[in-house]
Computed example of a mutant assay.
Amino acid sequence: MFGKRGVSVVVLRDADVIAEALRDALSSAGEAERPGLERAAALVAEASRTTEAELRGRWTRQRLTDAGHEGPVDSVAAIKALRQAEPGLSLLAAVQLTKEAAA
């Protein structure tokens, strides 16, 4: 009952689907399209290497910016601002997210 609870924040990734679509497009691309598609494929590959913690940190920083929070992202004020911006977040989740955003 009093065990350690994890933070349940789902990170959605479509990089693999997008990468597959780019590979398909590259297989039939003409010479004029190829450089742009190759660049896009490289960007998707780079984005797919982003960790879930980095994605959650980016999301948290954006939510804090949208909420008008200025200052350290792992402060009590940041936790309060995040919970006000996202009322469904538990205190534990908000603390974990702000720690990831600060890292």
Rank of each mutant, 00 (worst) to 15 (best):
L26E: 11
A25R: 15
T60Y: 02
A81R: 03
A45P: 01
V11S: 06
S90Y: 06
R56Q: 09
P87I: 12
A78C: 04
D24K: 12
V9L: 15
A45C: 07
Q62E: 12
R56T: 09
R56H: 00
S90V: 08
Q96L: 04
K80V: 08
Q62T: 12
G57M: 04
M1I: 15
T98M: 03
L55C: 03
M1S: 15
Q84Y: 01
S90W: 03
L82R: 03
R49A: 12
R56W: 00
V73L: 11
D66I: 01
S48I: 01
T50W: 06
W59Q: 12
E31T: 13
R83L: 05
T98G: 09
V73R: 14
A81I: 10
L37I: 06
A81E: 09
A15Y: 13
A93K: 00
A94Q: 06
A53I: 00
K99H: 05
D74A: 03
R58K: 11
E100L: 14
L91M: 09
D16S: 13
L89E: 07
V73E: 01
T51Y: 07
I79N: 01
L92R: 15
R63K: 13
E54S: 09
E70T: 15
E38V: 08
R34Y: 00
L91H: 12
E20D: 15
A41V: 08
W59R: 14
S48Q: 11
T65E: 14
D14M: 00
A103D: 07
A19E: 08
E86T: 10
V76E: 13
E31K: 13
A29E: 03
V9E: 08
E86C: 13
T60L: 05
A45F: 07
T51R: 09
V9D: 06
V73Y: 03
E20H: 12
A32W: 10
A45R: 13
A85I: 11
V9I: 15
H69Y: 06
T65K: 11
R58E: 12
A67F: 01
K99Q: 05
A15L: 10
L26Y: 10
G36S: 02
Q96N: 11
S27T: 07
G71A: 04
E86Q: 09
D66E: 14
D16T: 13
P72V: 05
D74M: 00
E52D: 15
V9C: 11
D16Q: 13
V9H: 09
V9Q: 10
V73C: 10
R61I: 06
E100T: 06
R39N: 05
A47D: 11
G30T: 05
A53G: 04
A15C: 11
R83S: 00
R58Y: 07
E38A: 13
L82Q: 08
M1Q: 14
K4A: 10
L26R: 10
D74R: 00
K80Q: 06
A19M: 08
E38R: 14
D24P: 00
